[in-house]
């Protein structure tokens, strides 16, 4: 693996919550490397530290110990503002609960990250938001508010919002947790498509059936990575979707 093309390079990440007797060791020395263009699934039991790891990788939180290089830049130890700027430029979040702004149109939701851009470049933010929404297949829902969209559509708006800044990595913590099987596969088809176009994606999931769409799976237990392997039978979401399609029509 060429180190220059590593998007994520973390070693010895530890996270301890609380102090004294009530300390929780959420991460106990995690090493992880993710190269550009990879799509990785992180699996593990509840409480194994997946979300904690995602928060640190997403610069929402700082590790108690360890070194974290994001896209070649060391980010552990940066202050709040610097972390905010890195989140804006380098990271796209997709959450289980979508986390769109209520009573705000899809277009405005997707445009939002560009409004916090501090690079000073002049951007046609509306046009970019429109193009990104079209990319996730929601060209006809731009003026809809989250309450007027299905769960799958909301998650696609969220993905468009994560994509719009062209981040180094997309971090998705249980992105299909609130979706039914069919919609989950649709979202995975979108992730696979984006991955084929070059996006680096890290997604957390409980379900082996979802992990099967990622070429690489990292398994965690008790704050440690216990297994890191390639998926034996990689599924293609688009073709799975065709198999599922008649079901959808029938219902």
């Amino acid at each position: 693996m060429d180190t220059r093309d590593l998007v994520i390079q973390a070693s010895g990440l530890k996270k301890i919550y609380g102090t004294g007797g009530s300390e929780v060791h959420a991460l106990r020395g995690v090493d992880l490397r993710v190269a550009r263009g990879e799509m990785v699934a992180i699996m593990g039991a509840s409480g194994s530290g997946k979300s904690t790891l995602m928060n640190i990788l997403g610069c929402l939180d700082q590790p108690t110990e360890g070194v974290y290089m994001l896209d070649g830049v060391r980010v552990d130890g940066l202050d709040r503002d610097e972390l905010a700027d890195i989140r804006n430029r380098e990271i796209g979040f997709v959450f289980q609960g979508f986390n769109l702004l209520a009573r705000t149109t899809a277009l405005d939701n997707v445009e939002l990250p560009l409004l916090y851009d501090r690079s000073g470049r002049k951007l046609d933010t509306k046009a970019m938001a429109r193009a990104t929404l079209e990319r996730v297949g929601l060209g006809d829902r731009m003026d809809h508010q989250p309450s007027e969209l299905s769960g799958g559509q909301q998650q696609r708006v969220a993905i468009a919002r994560a994509l719009i800044t062209n981040p180094a990595i997309i971090l998705a913590d249980e992105p299909t947790g609130n979706l039914d099987t069919h919609t989950s596969v649709e979202v995975l088809a979108l992730f696979q498509e984006l991955n084929r176009q070059g996006a680096t994606i890290l997604l957390v999931t409980h379900e082996p059936s979802i992990a099967a769409y990622a070429p690489r799976v990292v398994e965690m237990r008790d704050g440690l990575v216990v297994r890191d392997h390639a998926t034996q039978e990689l599924h293609d979401a688009t073709s799975d979707l065709q198999d599922l399609e008649p079901l959808e029509v029938a219902s």
């Binding site: 997403g58 929402l60 709040r80 503002d81 905010a84 700027d85 989140r87 804006n88 430029r89 979040f93 986390n99 769109l100 702004l101 939002l112 990250p113 916090y116 851009d117 919002r161 800044t165």
Partner: peptide, 9 residues
């Protein structure tokens, strides 16, 4: 949400 997508304090 705003902070996650890059809003500073």
């Amino acid at each position: 949400i705003r902070m996650a997508i890059g809003a500073r304090g």
